[in-house]
Design a protein around this nucleic acid. Sequence first.
RNA 1: CCUUUGAUUGUGCGG
Length: 421
Amino acid sequence: SVLYNTLISGYGNMGKIDEALELFQEMKKNQCSPNAVTCNIVMHILNRAGRYTEASALFAEMKDDYGFVPNTRTYNTIINGYLKAGKSSEALQMFEEMQKGGCSRDTITYNTMIMGLCKAGKVNDAYGIFATMEHQGCSPDVYTYNSIFYGLLKVHRLAEALTLFEVMKTKGCSPDHITYSTLINGFCIAGNADQALQFLGDLKASGHVPDLVTYSTLINGLCKVGRMDVAYKLYEDVLEQKFVPNLITMNTLLNGFGKDGQFDRARQLFAELKDMGISPDVVSYNALICAAGKVGNTDAAFQLLEEMQCAGCSPDVVTYSHLIELLSNSDKAGQAWDLFTQMEKRGCHPDLVSYNILLAGLVKASRLDDACYLMEEAKRKGLTPDLITYSTLISGFGTVGKVDEAYRLFLEMKEMGWTPD
RNA sequence: CCUUUGAUUGUGCGG
């Protein structure tokens, strides 16, 4: 069993899900039966593949059919799956259930809950759990603090993060390079790049070594606030040191130049990354298409669409969104709609964001009735219009003086449970 | 033999 478990786990770590699951099936047929650890491993693999439903089915199976008693790790794994699937209430239910069933929680259980809630934007709930863990005999560790930082900074609660950072150090928990990356990213997304740069200094001063993720994070933050010169200097630092930039580093910088209106510079980086032996992915192409759009170069954008397909890289919903927006911005709403229809035919299903983009294009072209029709179509497809959908339409009707229509939509929006911002 | 944390691409209005 141990041998099988090791193999299954190994395949899982290599991303070879099917092989791992096949071994699991083989194991069931052989005289060597799966044990509780096997189930934990397989559940974990299913979670990593985003197959949460199958993971929870296995959880039920292991209890009901195999008669295994779930242990702390089992619960930690299943709780993580529920959280990743966006099912916080089910996760919380398991969190309660394990306690009642006599299975003790550990720091990882708390960390898993805290991180999951933070990712879902529920920092306050996460904080509540954080506040109780100590009394339950589980001391917060660096994972706990890093997760709370992530959650607080995601919603721009900078001051609280800084306070907690001091508390963490006072309590003798040393920040690690992930703590610093989290802080750097958080301050960057809140627009405070100087504080972020300060953290890079602190990190080095405290004897840690920034890694490629730290640098990429900071480069991204500097790009986002338009400080391309500093971002590029940092990239040069990366090169000067022993680091080899990866695809994410290059995409980050490429996107930064593109957003800054430097299409040629973006192209140059695209060439550089290929020279480095890195294969551009859909993110690289999308960023470059966006850059072409930014400077109004529609031809280049569509050439890139061709180019990526020739290179074996399939356009995705983001690719089409960029192109649709680009067409809308050049007063070609009709062509934008055609492309929208085509993307569907090419097997790329529009999501709410792509609907919102085309809708904005129609509104811009004063085609308000068509825009309303499009919203209805989105509903028919099972998509729920959001605050942006409604705001787009409302402002469109407002602009042309159709206040009554705007008001009708405003009421509908509230009926749908949206709170006007 | 198994579980938890950090970086890259798309959407509205106003400022």
